[in-house]
Design a protein around this nucleic acid. Sequence first.
RNA 1: GCCGAUGUGGCUCAGAGGUAGAGCAGCUCACUCGUAAUGAGCAGGUCGUCGGUUCGAUUCCGACCAUCGGCUCCA
Length: 644
Amino acid sequence: MIQVTLKDGSIREVEQGTTIGELAAAISRGLAKIAVAGKVNDKMKDLSYKLTENAAVEIVTIESEEGLDVLRHSTSHLMAQAVENLFPGTKLGIGPTIAKGFYYDFDSEHVFTPEDLTLIEKEMGRLAKEKYSYERREVSRAEALSYFGERGEKYKVELIEGLPEDVPISMYTQGNFTDLCAGPHLPSTTSIKAFKLMSLAGAYWRGNEKNKMLQRIYGTAFAKQSELEDHLFKLEEAKRRDHRKLGLELDLFSLHEEGPGFPFFHPKGMILRNALEDFWRQEHRRRGYQEIKTPIILNRSMWEQSGHWDHYKENMYFTEIDDQDYAVKPMNCPGGMIMYKTKLRSYRDLPLRVGELGLVHRHELSGALHGLLRVRNFTQDDAHLFMLPSQIKEELIGVIELVDSFYKVFGFEYNVELSTRPEDSMGSDEDWEIATKALQEALEDKGINYSINPGDGAFYGPKIDFHVKDCLDRTWQCGTIQLDFQMPEKFDLNYIGEDGQKHRPVMVHRVVYGSIERFIALLTEHYAGAFPAWLAPVQVRILPISERHHEYGKSLASLLNELDIRVETDERKEKISYKIREAQTEKIPFALVVGDQEAESKMVAVRRYGQGDAGQKMTIDEFIALVQEEIKSKKVLKGSQENA
RNA sequence: GCCGAUGUGGCUCAGAGGUAGAGCAGCUCACUCGUAAUGAGCAGGUCGUCGGUUCGAUUCCGACCAUCGGCUCCA
């Protein structure tokens, strides 16, 4: 007999050789039904795994995230089987699970079409009903190589050759299909019922653009059909929130063939932008920042000095002025350097916090452009902090707190990454080490969870990135804090220390919004276009019931306008229900219906966005107080943030 | 950049080898109306661009441009 420690801490005696599946059945029949795998001493194993010694065992059920991963992984094998049946000769790449599903990469003569997905799904359904079991077999390296070699599975062969010597090699077989796989898998295809193939895409073998491009099929699977439907519904909902769609509907911005990646901001989009910028200026002033503006185009020699000419050229735009080379700035830092050097600085002046809402241009790959989330020109809410080495930690913490306070105002969730030295970079190992450590310490001091993103730093220094989620759960980098020992060196920045000698200041680059454009995109999706009053392009719309109420409407509008409340009056000859409908579809926070009753009593009937039904009657003063309070508090409107 | 798909009036979309339609929006007229679409009429497109095939192309073919989904999550 051996002892197994279960998840709840209880200990059970079972016979040596008992499988995890049998253990689950011994615990309860219900558990056995939903068990898909087990964790033995924290390692994932099949249900058929035989327990041979004392161990901690956890039964993984299909209802857990890990259980879903097992289901999806097995579904990806099933898909590969279906593809091989339908398109013989297809070579297999890899087929892992991902956040909300799985994919499999194929190398096939046949170019898959959306119609093929339906065919493959049908074949998968047929195969699943065959109730094949997933059989695990451990093999020697030589056996694995010969098995896949004979079948011309060159990608699998490459994978096996790349495996470390001491790793056991396993293969899983269901029916006529065998794949190289570490597992675990479902006991059989029986529980694969709710799945869907989502989309087709090209993907380089091993993610390297020098390799062949394979065809990737994305799919997803759930334990129950209802969960799959729920997931698909959420995807539809997310599409409705897409900032590109809402940007058009709400008349915020547009993109044109005449300038791919160069967005046009419309009047309403500008109001949003300006509101964000005003808030930014106010918050930064309070925290001891000064604002500057530096030129967009600067001479080549300066870009050579900054290192951009050597390390960032592919992303830059160039021009010529009076036979000399110039470049359009892809970053704001050089302007900040030049500004710093305009006078002799004292240690007493530091830290110096210099902000700039700077328009930068970067040549992004055409395939990477994406609405306002990925553009070729954008405004960074940049700032450069010049400091004494002794001030580094305090300044970094100040920025971390600033970023956090901003994101809280908008109600954004975010995660933090620390990016380390990239291949193409400048500076000494020592400097990088010190800089990376300083960032790490600041994060740890604030007790912030972060992950490390190796090699993703800027060419001049490591960075902390703040990633915000969009409505499709994709994350986008917004805020970043970069510690830089290189630029001060390159530009020979100094300050006069207490000792009367020249010293090198340390510099931090940082952004909070990241790019105003990207932040607007994320806000649009986050609020589903129903911006809180302080951001709403139109805060109040007055809806006179008929022409004889226009005058009262006008007097109301001019009153609100005087108070800097953004107000419009809808004087079209339309029915009131039509005007209300439009005010709702445009997601205006407050709609005021005014007719005989209101005009006589000097009241307004307030209809709030998303709260439907008849408006609440209040005096003009009460309404003004309400709006002003809501603008001032930056309150998030009810109903605008429900999960997509 | 690479793989795949798409490109028809301001928007959403239908259509076919013989030079184009619908709904919404717009304009005009009538209705002056109480909380999510009043009715009628009018106007609007060299069918992404450039070539080729054809008696004839927006429809077929090719190139280019733009857009969309991907190209990170490692058997």
